[in-house]
């Protein structure tokens, strides 16, 4: 799957879960940049992404991302390997 496609799908998941149509994600976006993205919604977002792409992250991965780009990298890796 194209990286851009993944990013846009992730953005839709964010919009849906954070209930905020204004969310715009780039590779460099970090949690503080997005209103409502905190440690709790983070887990909801993760669950949403896992269900959407039918993948499963490890606990380490979930805690390791520093920005959206790194998260998308992991997603892409997972999809390719599965």
């Amino acid at each position: 799957m194209e990286r851009v496609v993944i990013l846009s799908q992730v953005q839709d998941i964010f919009k849906d879960i954070l209930d905020d149509e204004e969310v715009i994600l780039t590779d460099k976006t970090q949690a503080p940049d997005v209103k409502g993205w905190d440690s709790l919604t983070h887990i909801q977002l993760v669950v949403g992404i896992e269900r959407h792409f039918k993948i499963r992250f490890t606990s380490r991965e979930i805690q390791s991302w520093n920005n959206v780009g790194e998260m998308v990298d992991t997603i892409q890796n997972r999809i390719q390997n599965s």
């Binding site: 440690s39 709790l40 887990i43 993760v46 669950v47 606990s59 979930i62 805690q63």
Partner: peptide, 15 residues
Amino acid sequence: TPLSIAFRDLGKLGL
């Protein structure tokens, strides 16, 4: 945080 990740599929109950 690790616990809430481990229980993430349970939704709010997990939290």
